[in-house]
Simulated assay, not measured.
Amino acid sequence: MTWSAENATKAYLRTLKLGNKPMEPDVAEFISALAAGSGARLMVEACSDGAGPTTLALIAAANQTGGRAVCIVHGPDELRSSVEFLGSEADNAELVVGDARKLLMGEYLGADFVLVDCEMREHERVFRAAQAGAVEGCGGVVVGYNAFCGRPCRSGRTKVEHLPIGGGMTVCRVPPQAKKSQWVVRVDEDTGEEHVFRITSPRRKWIEA
């Protein structure tokens, strides 16, 4: 992923204009700048409750990169509260009811920016699913917020940074998985001409217990 300081700055300023900041200062702005600066196109948030300032941050980033902002909530009550909170910005986000882990390994596999609320149940499994999805795609960034409220997210596969921003943040940059390739030579029996092909093997699937 290529970093864009211009996108980061514009998303940061747009988030400030959206206002409505019940969270600790700078959390939403940091998330928005990180997502936009990374050039993310599919941004997914897994919420413990309903949409909040972090959702607005992704909407601002998506507006800057021309991407999509998705917010996954648990049920219809959270969906209603999300629509109420977002107000006119609700049309700029895809509000989805469902299991965040399954959706990140299914419909949203390959999301290049995933935001996980560490106050949600099984947030560690959701975090790992987001990492796995990024590996299957072209890499990405996975962020856990409210990290001081639950067990910190860890991974033995990729480097994780713990930042003292707001209620604590965990940031993981996931590189795309390298494809293995080999050269194959085929000889045309009629002409004797050699043809050389480069074959790329499928990427190894990430299997979660």
Results as ranks from 00 to 15, higher is better:
residue 154 R to I: 15
residue 163 L to V: 09
residue 156 G to P: 09
residue 14 R to K: 14
residue 88 S to A: 13
residue 142 V to F: 03
residue 66 G to N: 12
residue 148 F to L: 11
residue 139 G to H: 04
residue 116 V to F: 03
residue 51 A to F: 06
residue 183 W to I: 15
residue 34 L to F: 00
residue 44 V to I: 01
residue 158 T to E: 15
residue 155 S to M: 07
residue 85 F to C: 01
residue 74 H to D: 15
residue 69 A to R: 13
residue 187 V to P: 02
residue 47 C to T: 00
residue 47 C to E: 02
residue 95 L to G: 03
residue 69 A to Q: 15
residue 147 A to R: 07
residue 171 V to G: 06
residue 39 G to V: 01
residue 137 G to H: 05
residue 42 L to P: 07
residue 25 P to Y: 00
residue 136 E to H: 12
residue 121 R to K: 13
residue 147 A to S: 09
residue 158 T to D: 14
residue 183 W to E: 15
residue 111 A to F: 02
residue 203 R to L: 12
residue 164 P to M: 07
residue 49 D to E: 09
residue 120 M to H: 14
residue 29 E to V: 01
residue 87 G to E: 02
residue 69 A to Y: 13
residue 88 S to N: 12
residue 73 V to W: 10
residue 138 C to E: 15
residue 147 A to F: 05
residue 179 K to H: 07
residue 45 E to Q: 07
residue 166 G to Y: 00
residue 202 P to D: 11
residue 61 A to W: 00
residue 110 G to H: 13
residue 127 F to E: 13
residue 142 V to A: 03
residue 127 F to H: 11
residue 158 T to C: 11
residue 45 E to W: 01
residue 105 M to Y: 02
residue 166 G to C: 04
residue 203 R to A: 12
residue 192 G to Y: 10
residue 133 G to R: 13
residue 208 E to G: 10
residue 20 N to I: 09
residue 67 G to Y: 06
residue 180 K to D: 14
residue 181 S to D: 13
residue 101 R to K: 14
residue 86 L to I: 04
residue 8 A to P: 08
residue 142 V to P: 02
residue 78 E to P: 02
residue 171 V to F: 10
residue 132 A to V: 07
residue 131 Q to L: 15
residue 28 A to V: 02
residue 52 G to C: 13
residue 36 A to Y: 00
residue 170 T to Q: 14
residue 143 V to I: 06
residue 177 Q to M: 10
residue 184 V to Y: 03
residue 24 E to C: 01
residue 38 S to G: 12
residue 52 G to A: 12
residue 52 G to D: 12
residue 160 V to L: 14
residue 130 A to Y: 04
residue 182 Q to E: 11
residue 70 V to F: 05
residue 162 H to R: 15
residue 26 D to N: 09
residue 29 E to D: 01
residue 124 E to F: 02
residue 135 V to G: 09
residue 155 S to I: 06
residue 123 H to I: 10
residue 51 A to L: 06
residue 40 A to H: 05
residue 73 V to H: 08
residue 156 G to M: 10
residue 172 C to H: 06
residue 96 V to S: 09
residue 146 N to V: 09
residue 95 L to R: 04
residue 180 K to W: 14
residue 90 A to G: 11
residue 68 R to T: 10
residue 94 E to S: 12
residue 36 A to H: 02
residue 76 P to F: 08
residue 32 S to N: 03
residue 100 A to V: 07
residue 37 G to A: 08
residue 46 A to T: 05
residue 204 R to A: 05
residue 183 W to M: 15
residue 64 Q to E: 14
residue 64 Q to A: 03
residue 162 H to Y: 14
residue 96 V to L: 11
residue 156 G to A: 08
residue 113 F to K: 03
residue 106 G to A: 04
residue 165 I to C: 00
residue 192 G to C: 12
residue 141 V to S: 02
residue 94 E to A: 07
residue 48 S to E: 06
residue 81 S to Q: 15
residue 50 G to V: 03
residue 142 V to Q: 05
residue 21 K to D: 03
residue 80 R to M: 14
residue 177 Q to P: 00
residue 167 G to Y: 04
residue 42 L to Q: 05
residue 189 E to N: 10
residue 119 E to V: 11
residue 206 W to F: 14
residue 205 K to Q: 06
residue 78 E to C: 12
residue 199 I to G: 06
residue 152 P to N: 15
residue 99 D to T: 00
residue 83 V to S: 10
